[in-house]
Amino acid sequence: MKKIGRLIELKEGALKPANLGILTTAVKEGHEIFAILMETVTSDIQQQLARYGTDHIVKVVMNRPDWNPARWAQAVVTVLENLDIHILMGMTSAQGKDLLPRIAAILDAPLVMDCVHVDIDEQMAKTSQYSGKTTATFSLIGETILYGMRPNAIAAVVHPTAPHVTEQILDIPEETKLQVIEVLPGKPGTQNLSEADVIVSGGRGLKNAENFKIIFDCANAFGDAAVGASRVAVDEGWAPYAMQVGQTGTKVNPKVYIACGISGSVQHIAGMKTSGLIIAINTDATAAILAHCDYFVIGDLFTILPALTLKLTQL
């Protein structure tokens, strides 16, 4: 039995749902799981972690708890050393992309990001390579091994435990070379694409910025779906870059991806091909996207999408 550190990510004080599938990955292999939390841990968070197979909840209490990626990375390294943990799993989110490689650099440890599968005993990880066109298997060799898991790649399975709660009180030196000056919130309503369950996306077929409203309306009808866009829609200024799906945008992995007026270029497909279910709405029966989806409608998105939105709001 090995000790596995799980870097848990919160958003506005609550547990991000995508953490749970990553816990499941570790549970399946029957190891001792340490959930490492850098922020205030509410009893609600503790209960959720206990439901999904956490053996230890490690609350990190720092002399200066505010966000600073360099200090936080140093704090995680210290926790791993204090608890003699040599495997760390995190999430390939914006925060994970800022912390895991820093931790790997400090420890000179191997790291694979965006893993869709890991084998902890064999120290192997599978991830996409060459813009999603291939899947590579890596063998990680080193004293400490780091995995950045792709959000939503593994479905969470309930596994109740009674975690042991401990605190790690750390005095991490002030970071002089890197300071966080301010954090500017995104536009209200901008959803986080990489962890969304449902994404409704629009491309050139939308024709202008005003028409994007019908994409937003449909996303709202789902409750909390996110809105995505092709690069053309972003380049035209109809949607912000934060919404771009694809190789040079965000790589997404929702349960459902609805592509409206998107032709299905290789660069777009590279960013959404691992989605659970893909639905395409396109007027062109020869569009490439139709070969990369589960269901397609050959038709005008301006009639099909509002009809779907209406049906969803009537549920």
Binding site: P110, L111, T135, A136, T137, F138, I141, G142, E143, Y295
Partner: peptide, 23 residues
């Protein structure tokens, strides 16, 4: 270096979908 990230396998990403039309 003592640590390594070694690629041991590479396969084309599989497409397991069979698209169905909705009419």
């Amino acid at each position: 270096p003592a640590s390594r990230i070694e690629m041991v396998g590479l396969i084309p990403a599989m497409e397991k979908r069979c698209p169905k039309e909705i009419t």
